[in-house]
């Protein structure tokens, strides 16, 4: 406790000292981030405000970030931006540093609902970055009926059979399938697991492809009539002129949140905290949202969002729709069964 206080005091003192001389270069900041997920202007702004040299390295999936950090890159970055379940995994691996109380001046800006989240209780290691949902979209030129049902993916009507793209993402596909069957995500019940396996096997017959990067383009081009997709991605497809509608199925949908985490052995811990504070300012995080088309989790950011984003049908679930759930992190033995089901699905 004492050391934490001491650290905090030191950090605060340092921050104050550095803030007093913003013109001088105050070292550097090394970010490990998704591709194309932060506007360059914002990084430049941070660099100018704090006199910090910002370098960014990028990854293409949560798991490849984890693999690279485990293979030896931990210690070379200050912050990373893992998804919800990955925060929990990284914390469990001891890859995250703890943010002490008071170290983040803007921590109070975090929206109530994103403060005590299941993957990081009371936000000890992370702050919200962007959040959105995963469900599916339907090309309305090709199918006009009711789409508020996960059966569109797992027991599809004849019109769309063979014209379905699902995300090549085990966690999200399994979570949606579990919702369709009304079973928990990390089930240990063998009957349920066999049922899940059978459902995926029977649904696959009607699927044309697995694809994440191309999830938007196959819907826009009309190659897929139904496509599992992230809400912001679907909004972009609609903005390009495709007649696609994002569904909030009655069984539920997946919610995900990317978070900025403080990495263990961060070479520039103070600048990392400054960067987190910077991203907790409504106008800055709103700039990210307007760029990436996903929602922020910071008080006061909502008003600064583009009108089109704030009111888009993709970001506002219809009244009375089922709540979204996070992809859960199962224990090892359970996860191995889910991995086996996925392998059987794609063998």
């Amino acid at each position: 406790m004492k050391t934490t206080l001491l650290k905090t005091g030191l950090a605060l003192g340092l921050t104050a000292a550095l803030a007093a001389t913003p013109a001088q270069a105050a070292g550097s900041l090394s970010i490990y981030h998704w591709f194309e997920y932060i506007p360059q202007e914002l990084l430049d702004k941070f660099a100018a405000e704090h006199g910090v040299e910002v370098t960014m390295d990028t990854y293409d999936s949560n798991e490849s970030m984890l693999a690279a950090l485990k293979a030896g890159k931990l210690g070379s970055y200050d912050v990373a931006v893992p998804g919800d379940y990955m925060v929990k995994i990284m914390a469990g691996e001891g890859m995250l540093d703890t943010i002490a109380d008071g170290e983040l001046a803007n921590k109070g800006n975090i929206e109530e609902q994103w403060l005590d989240v299941p993957f990081d209780p009371m936000r000890q290691h992370s702050i919200p970055y962007q959040w959105g949902s995963t469900s599916f979209s339907v090309n309305r030129d090709q199918y006009a009926g009711d789409i508020s049902d996960t059966a569109m993916l797992f027991d599809p009507p004849d019109e769309v059979k063979g014209k379905i793209n699902v995300l090549d993402s085990q966690g999200e596909v399994m979570a949606m399938a579990s919702m369709h069957l009304g079973m928990p995500q990390c089930s240990t019940d063998r009957t349920q697991l066999k049922e899940l396996d059978a459902l995926l096997q029977s649904a696959k017959v009607h699927w044309a492809s697995f694809g994440s990067d191309v999830a938007k383009d196959v819907l826009v081009s009309g190659d897929a009539a139904v496509g599992m997709i992230w809400n912001g991605f679907s909004a972009k497809g609609r903005a390009e002129g495709a007649n696609i509608e994002y569904a909030y199925p009655k069984q539920g949908h997946v919610v995900w949140m990317d978070n900025v985490v403080l990495l263990k052995d961060a070479p520039n811990r103070d600048n990392a905290l400054k960067f987190m504070d910077f991203l907790l300012e409504p106008e800055n995080i709103a700039a990210v949202s307007n760029f990436a088309q996903y929602m922020a989790g910071v008080n006061g950011a909502l008003e600064l969002l583009d009108e089109s984003l704030r009111t888009s049908p993709e970001s506002v679930p219809p009244a009375g729709s089922a709540p979204g759930v996070f992809v859960e992190v199962c224990d090892q033995a359970t996860q191995e069964v889910y991995d086996a089901i996925w392998t059987r699905l794609k063998k």
Binding site: E63, D168, Q170, G171, S209, F210, G211
Partner: peptide
Amino acid sequence: GAKNFMIGSLIEEQFKGN
């Protein structure tokens, strides 16, 4: 369409996938 694993994607899944 990535419906079936190939050797490359199978190995990829072990390092970069779930």
